[in-house]
């Protein structure tokens, strides 16, 4: 009896260790393989040039149009998400702090919202676009991605705000501050690390998402200068080039995925770094 117990324990510990290490291997391989494949085709041209004539037949050029397009869209979307999301998160944690039930229900609904897939946002953005008579453009892309990243923004920021001790903002109210002043001067300052993390996370999601901009942002070889012009995005650049029958073009898709991965890594690492740094100056 006792012997069997020990054997059972050993087997399961071994199994779970195998599961964990093979996960590490598989997940590590993803980044390694994308990098190894990508670095072969990666050149300075990829990053500083837009596609020239014949690019899609293996000619000269790069994906600067897509890099810039992605950054524009993600930046615009994050801006909208901040305007919409920051007040909402502050409201949740300052005005609703006494209504635990409402607070939790709103968090629940926000989490549900977070779960809606980006293709649905994309399809909705498209209907919205038709409704307002817009063309596939930078603006339509920004709005659609903004819808996608706002719940992320709110919930991430809220997660940090909710850890701020309640005494702190009660103290602020007791000193005669209005709730708005408490929100923006005390809570925002205390939760600034969370705010940065939330904004970066939203930005990262915005850069990496393809399904939502597929219908709405269009695609172009030029760098957009106006909101009503179409814009290329990096994920779509990867997707379209992978579909090409010409090997050189596919190679470039791998290079573009390396660029995208590096951008995402930079964003998530700096989010980590910044949130660690800012949280050191905070009252715990």
């Amino acid at each position: 009896m006792n012997r069997w117990k020990i054997i059972e324990e050993k087997i399961f510990i071994a199994l779970s260790a195998i599961a964990t290490y093979s996960l590490i291997a598989v997940l590590g391989l993803i980044i390694v393989i994308v990098f190894v494949k990508g670095f072969n085709a990666l050149s300075l041209d990829m990053v500083i040039k837009t596609p020239k004539g014949g690019y899609y037949y293996g000619g000269e050029g790069g994906v600067l149009n897509a890099i810039v397009g992605s950054i524009y869209i993600a930046f615009g979307a994050t801006l909208i998400a901040i305007v919409l999301g920051m007040p909402a998160a502050l409201f949740l944690n300052v005005h609703l702090v006494r209504h635990k039930k409402t607070q939790e229900t709103i968090r629940y609904l926000l989490d549900v919202l977070w779960g809606i897939p980006s293709i649905v946002y994309g399809a909705f953005g498209f209907t919205l676009m038709l409704f307002f008579g817009l063309n596939a453009s930078l603006l339509a892309g920004i709005i659609t991605v903004a819808l996608l990243v706002t719940p992320i923004m709110v919930r991430t920021f809220d997660e940090v705000l909710s850890t701020i001790p309640r005494g702190l903002h009660e103290a602020s109210l007791a000193l005669g501050s209005t709730k708005a002043e408490t929100s923006y001067k005390v809570m925002l300052k205390q939760g600034f690390s969370g705010f940065i993390t939330a904004a970066l996370l939203a930005f990262g999601r915005g850069i990496g998402d393809a399904a939502s901009v597929l219908f709405t942002a269009g695609y172009t070889d030029l760098i957009p200068v106006n909101l009503d012009e179409p814009a290329a995005t990096l994920p779509l650049a990867i997707f379209f080039q992978l579909g090409s029958p010409i090997p050189e073009v596919r190679e470039r898709a791998y290079a573009a995925s390396t660029i995208l991965t590096i951008i995402i890594l930079i964003i998530s690492l700096s989010a980590r770094f910044l949130s660690n740094r800012y949280s050191k100056t905070n009252i715990k």
Binding site: I30, V34, A210, P235, S257, I264
Partner: peptide, 10 residues
């Protein structure tokens, strides 16, 4: 946080 396109490439 990796974009799904990257998983697709992989």
């Amino acid at each position: 946080g990796l974009p799904s396109v990257i998983y697709g490439v992989w």
